[in-house]
Design a protein around this nucleic acid. Structure first.
Lengths: 138, 138
DNA sequence: CCCATGTAGTCAAGCTGCTTGACCAAATAG
DNA sequence: CTATTTGGTCAAGCAGCTTGACTACATGGG
């Protein structure tokens, strides 16, 4: 289906842009994690739910991101068992790079389309998409 | 991105429909393979190119599909090295089931949208999607 | 006609990202 | 104060892919 092709092209394009900006050790999956971590941080379990994987998988991804310097594990303010994962400066820089890359990919597309048809596409897609479903690994 | 959510929902929906029709041992990736095999069959290498994986990976997927009875390995009519992978009766039945499932998922969506806006969405997506790119494994 | 190079396919080994299962420590309910 | 739930980790295993090496057939130039 061409919906899939478009989605792939989009993800590839953004990933390409992120790498071009110097973050060569990032995969698209990391970007999906950043979406959840960006506002106020999250626990491993919350991250796991957001990504649709087990908490072990999320934990080991967190390990990787900590090792690479994008994420910190801080003590949770109210729960001594939990740890709050938050973005480091480098993590935020990468998030900004991803936003830039995304605009870069979408801008010419939105331009060619015009605001009206763009809105049509957006609403059309949002009726099909169930909220929060981001499981790219088939 | 909500484009991804829509793509995921679509794939999941179709896969669900296929399973509901009795083909419980199928993954979405198999469907992508069928797209290439359906018209006249294909060799392992052609399948590999279509899926964007190595020929070894394609070959072992072919093994699986043969084992499950969806695909046959026949001698290639003009090249004694090659083997032509073709769908069996069961393979065609599964293809038909997938088509039905796809319409089932898309029909209410297309209905709600109307032909005009549907066409808009289609053309919009096709400008973004590069041809033949179907690599769902990020 | 024959050899050199290219191509289709398989075998084998290894890696990566995920899973299931078991467990500990802190939180929470009774 | 115990019993259960919840956040997190450790360990082992698996699925789907990769790279590398090899065989059998194809093909083009001498």
């Amino acid at each position: 289906m061409l919906l899939l092709g478009a989605a792939s092209a989009l993800v590839d394009g953004i990933n390409e842009g992120v790498r071009a900006r110097g973050f060569t050790d990032m995969r698209p999956a990391h970007g999906f994690a950043f979406v959840r971590l960006a506002p106020d941080g999250a626990t491993v379990v919350e991250l796991a739910e957001h990504l649709g994987v087990t908490k072990q998988a999320a934990s080991q991804m967190a390990d990787e991101l900590v090792r690479k310097g994008y994420v910190e594990r801080r003590p949770h303010p109210t729960d001594a068992r939990a740890r709050l994962l938050t973005l480091t400066g480098r993590g935020w820089a990468c998030t900004r790079a991803a936003d830039e890359a995304a605009s870069e990919v979408l801008l010419p597309w939105a331009d060619a389309l015009g605001p009206d048809r763009l809105a049509t596409v957006r609403t059309a897609l949002s009726t099909l998409a169930v909220p929060g479903r981001i499981r790219p690994t088939w």
